[in-house]
Nucleic acid binder design. Structure first.
Length: 588
RNA sequence: GCACCCAUAGCUCAACUGGAUAGAGCGUUCGUCUACGGAACGAAAGGUUGGGGAUUCGAACUCCUCUGGGUGCACCA
């Protein structure tokens, strides 16, 4: 359902009559809303091709159209749609169970990898973007008809685990495990919480850089865990389980959930087989003892002549070989990444796998994707996509930290938001509803994040996050709450919408814009357009609300039409918020 | 050094992919309260789109160049 299609069809008829080419016709929203609702730049684009003056061409087409909705100006063909057409569109949307949002023609099956939690660390502000963006993209793709599965791909393997277990042992947390000889499973993790890990892991991480023996021991511990040796492996499993539980709680605060809770450790079983594939296909070679794959294409990774003997070798368009196996036989980040692709493709068939991480990992994924394609681990027709998002910076332009130099825990950010929202709710006579406050506070944060272009860094300003005025999530929630209030009081039946004033026109046009933004966002893996067009619709409604008294409308038919518009706006806003992963609230 | 990304109103961000007069929110100033819920509505001020050049009928957007930031450059994840 799209007004632009109706308009295109009309214009096409005229083009055919005039014997003009049809391929460049596209009707877009007006860039001059004061002049018209829609426009096409067809004449400007096509004029040269057909060797005509664009201004005359536009006039010729408009004349052929013979419809007062169309007019020509400076080569633009401007369209002001009739109230009748807008009314018809509004009713069609209201009566459609998909609210007029068109699904994609060929739905696909995809896996989205987002979240990025690490079991040895508590989630902090730096972990916010991935679940917020990932969840919204997942919902958007589902809305558009795709089958989407989400995997959080936990960071649960490698050196960090060895370090953490070692540090815990040294600090006496694990005595019981090491005194026992069997039945490790029944021993509880005493006094160990996520806060403990928060202290212990960074402590160990710092120590390994200055204490060689400690580093060596941590390497051993890491190996023991990977070899599933006891009690190391059971301790690891228990820490992981505790951490995952906490991570799930954190994610649910953000309305984020996953179909799979696999981690790097789950791909472990696929690593050997994956590497063997590269060896068998003669894609891998030894370099300084490491097993590497050359992935540079023509024109990449060209050595720059050295100026002196001891100068480091540098490259033009660098694309270094990917290291599958370290000199000592150990595996690396990329080995796990490729094995994970192998695992996923063995478990199911995906048309596309989407990864969501911050932009520092661009090279890593480029390398992993090339390897997977080279060895046929990812089938040729499978799309591998890395969506990289910018970092949340402080006002100093560097990754966000508190004044004392620490990052803020995700949980604490949410609590700040809840407190602020609670305060506001109290002023409205709603007390002690922390869940409602969470929906509003988190809604503010999510909307603020999703309004930005994904790939760009942006400034994390806690005061801005805590503001619920203007172009924010709560503004939209508030608009819905006010509509609820009207609908509850009205108790009327709904009827056909008859658009008849400029505020109503604005609402329906904003609705059309919102509906068409889903597809654009879908195609571009973006969300900011959806945010802004949702706000625009809410804004158009607020203006209407202020200028027209709905409940006191005397004309019964008009009143029903107005109430139907309210219902329509409520439905459209609710759907948009839901797609963004933001809660709709009844009252606030 | 090599490579990628970014620079738009005082601040935070847009601009539907090359179109008309570059738009929002916040902040500032001035208005709208007998309120269908003021987390609201209306208006004003605020711009040489980092500098310079090129392509085009037409550039914030494409190309070149300079300046200023960020990120990454094989045995961490």
């Amino acid at each position: 359902m799209d007004l632009r299609n109706i308009l295109s069809t009309k214009i096409l008829v005229a083009l055919k009559k005039l014997n003009l080419p049809c391929e460049n016709l596209s009707v877009s929203f007006s860039s001059r809303p004061d002049v018209c609702d829609f426009q096409t730049n067809y004449a400007l684009i096509t004029a040269k091709k057909v060797k005509k003056n664009p201004i005359e061409l536009a006039e010729e087409i408009v004349e052929e159209l013979d419809d007062t909705s169309f007019s020509a100006l400076k080569g633009f063909i401007n369209i002001k749609v009739s109230d009748k057409l807008l009314s018809q569109f509004a009713n069609d949307v209201l009566n459609d169970k998909e609210l007029g949002i068109e699904k994609v023609e060929s739905p696909r099956k995809l896996l989205i990898d987002y979240g990025g939690a690490n079991v040895a660390k508590e989630l902090h502000v730096g972990h916010l973007r991935s679940p917020i963006i990932g969840e919204a993209l997942k919902r958007l793709h589902r809305l558009m008809g795709d089958t989407v599965l989400a995997d959080t791909h936990l960071g649960d393997w490698g050196m960090q685990m060895g370090l953490t277990v070692l540090q815990l042992k040294e600090d006496g947390y694990l005595d019981e495990f090491f005194r026992a000889n069997s039945d490790y499973e029944s021993i509880p993790l005493k006094n160990i919480t996520l806060d403990t890990l928060n202290d212990e892991y960074p402590k160990a991480s710092k120590r390994k850089d200055v204490d060689v023996n400690f580093k060596k021991l941590a390497d051993d511990y890491t190996l023991f865990i990977q070899q599933k040796r006891e009690p190391y492996y059971t301790i690891y499993k228990k820490i992981r389980a505790m951490s995952v539980e906490e991570i799930k709680k954190n994610y649910s605060l953000l309305n984020t959930s996953f179909d799979f809770w696999f981690g790097e450790s789950d791909a472990e079983d696929y690593i050997d087989g994956t590497i063997k594939l590269f060896v068998d296909k003669k894609l891998a070679r030894l370099s300084d003892g490491a097993l590497v794959v050359d992935i540079a294409k023509e024109g990449e990774h060209i050595p720059i002549p050295k100026k002196s003997e001891d100068e480091e070798q540098r490259y033009k368009n660098p694309m270094p070989p990917a290291i599958l196996k370290k000199y000592n036989g150990g595996y690396l980040y990329i080995s796990t990444e490729i094995a994970t692709i192998a695992m996923r493709n063995k478990m199911d068939k995906y048309d596309e796998i989407i990864y969501l991480t911050d932009n520092r990992q661009g090279k890593h994924f480029e390398q992993a994707f090339r390897c997977a394609k080279l060895a046929g681990i990812s089938p040729e027709n499978q799309k591998l996509t890395h969506i990289s998002f910018g970092t949340m910076n402080g006002k100093d332009g560097k990754p966000f930290k508190t004044r004392s130099g620490e990052t803020i825990r995700l949980k604490d950010v949410v609590n700040l938001l809840i407190d602020k929202a609670s305060e506001k709710l109290k002023a409205n006579g709603i007390e002690n509803d922390r869940e409602l406050a969470r929906k509003i506070g988190v809604g503010a944060m999510k909307f603020g994040d999703l309004s930005n272009i994904i790939s760009k860094d942006y400034v994390f300003d806690i005061d801005k996050f805590l503001s619920f005025d203007g172009k924010t999530g709560p503004y939209i929630q508030y608009t819905i709450a006010r509509i609820n209030s009207i609908l509850n009081k009205a108790e009327d039946d709904f009827s056909k919408i008859t658009v008849e004033n400029s505020e109503e026109r604005e609402i329906i046009l904003a609705l059309q814009k919102l509906n068409s933004s889903y597809k654009i966002c879908y195609d571009e893996y973006s969300l900011n357009l959806l945010c802004s067009s949702t706000f625009d619709l809410a804004k158009a409604f607020s203006t209407y609300y202020n200028n027209h008294k709905i409940l006191s409308e005397k004309d019964a038919e008009k009143r029903k039409s107005m109430l139907s518009i309210c219902l329509l706006v409520k439905k459209a806003l609710s759907k948009a918020l839901d797609t963004l992963g933001i809660d709709v609230v009844e009252k606030m």
